[in-house]
């Protein structure tokens, strides 16, 4: 049996996050653990300490922000 589809927007692209109930699940399934980035869900920063408790719901807009050079 497959989970019900749960479409979210990740970095501007629609993905099915059916098997991802939290930000921690999303990071793990996208093989992003260990990198330097910050997670923003619906314009709110989610600190790393809150990834496991922050749920992912259909329609959420998730941005992964990385360091870049700047002046």
């Amino acid at each position: 049996m497959t989970s019900k589809q749960q479409i979210i927007e990740l970095n501007g692209e629609s993905i099915d996050a059916a098997d991802m109930s939290s930000v921690a699940d999303l990071i793990e399934q996208k093989n992003m653990t260990g990198g330097r980035f910050v997670v923003v869900v619906n314009d709110e920063v989610v600190p790393k300490s809150s990834w496991a408790q922050t749920s992912i719901n259909a329609g959420d807009k998730v941005d992964i922000m990385s360091p870049i050079s700047g002046g």
Partner: peptide, 23 residues
Amino acid sequence: ITVSLRRQTPTDSKSGDKFWQMI
């Protein structure tokens, strides 16, 4: 040093880590 941040792109998700290692 001044730095900035941007949204990751699907094709270039690791450049942020490389930059971070340098700084």
